[in-house]
């Protein structure tokens, strides 16, 4: 079990500040939902934690230790939004998961691959297939298996269900919740959908224009939002009832 602590994280692209001075603690074994409107910096923050966005200032601490510029398999893993882009089209599903495993013997590897595929509900016999033989939901499960195979203490999930069919979205969310409870990793769950965040999170953090504007227990934040941004987000929860009558 690990905790994730962000201290004064700032990310700049040239003169543009995408994330500004964000402090956030994701306690071990819990889920923090990260919400915010268009371009508020959620994904950039998530990427910065795993080293995919340049941190201009601040520290990422895992279990109190600075992540710094260490190489190799990190204790933080990220699952991407689009399962059609996050798996190598030329690599079998088994090889993709194996890439996350520590180097061991061939036999040990394939049992481990099978175990992780099984964990996310993919028949291990499908390990020999390339991603084009899988549906979006199955691909996202494979991406999840790959991330979990690296035994992360912290998992970052960036909009992982927004490219999925509603019929599988629920299944992936159920799976994620179950695995989080079972394996006990800390999770930063990024989504624009408050309903989904509410369902999974112990704590909700709200971003606006690169800053963290509100953070607190899910119930409190959603019932008594303190910041105007949170109130706006609550007012525009995606819904399938017609939004504007006159259009």
């Amino acid at each position: 079990m690990s905790s994730l602590e962000l201290r004064g994280i700032t990310v700049r692209y040239g003169r543009f500040t995408a994330v500004e001075n964000v402090d956030l603690l994701v306690p071990e074994g819990t889920v923090t939902g990260l919400v915010g409107g268009s371009g508020s910096g959620k994904s950039t923050l998530g990427k910065a934690v795993v080293g995919l966005a340049p941190i201009t200032a601040g520290q990422v601490l895992v279990d109190g230790g600075d992540l710094g510029r260490r190489r190799g398999r990190g204790p933080v893993q990220l699952v991407f939004q689009n399962p059609y882009a996050s798996l190598d089209p030329r690599m079998t599903v088994g090889a993709a998961v194996a890439e996350a495993l520590p180097r061991t013997g061939r036999a040990a590897r394939s049992t481990e691959v099978a175990r992780y595929l099984e964990l996310v509900g993919i028949d291990p016999s499908r390990a020999v297939l390339t991603p084009d033989a899988l549906s979006g939901g199955q691909r996202q499960r494979v991406a999840l298996a790959r991330a979990l195979a690296a035994r992360p203490g912290v998992l970052i999930a960036d909009e992982i269900t927004s490219a999925l069919d509603v019929s599988v979205q629920g299944a992936v969310l159920n799976l994620l919740r179950e695995l989080q409870r079972e394996l006990g990793f800390a999770m930063l769950f990024i989504s624009h959908n408050l309903a989904v965040v509410r369902y999974l999170s112990d704590q909700v953090a709200v971003m606006d224009e690169g800053r963290l504007v509100e953070c607190g227990p899910t119930d409190r934040v959603l019932r008594q939002p303190e910041h105007a941004t949170t109130r706006t987000l609550l007012a525009c929860v995606p819904t399938i009832s017609p939004a504007e009558e006159a259009s």
Binding site: L52, R71, R73, L78, F80, A85, D88, E99
Partner: peptide, 11 residues
């Protein structure tokens, strides 16, 4: 691409 980013994160 995302899959290369994923491989990078995996070390």
């Amino acid at each position: 691409s995302d899959y290369v980013a994923a491989a990078r994160i995996l070390g």
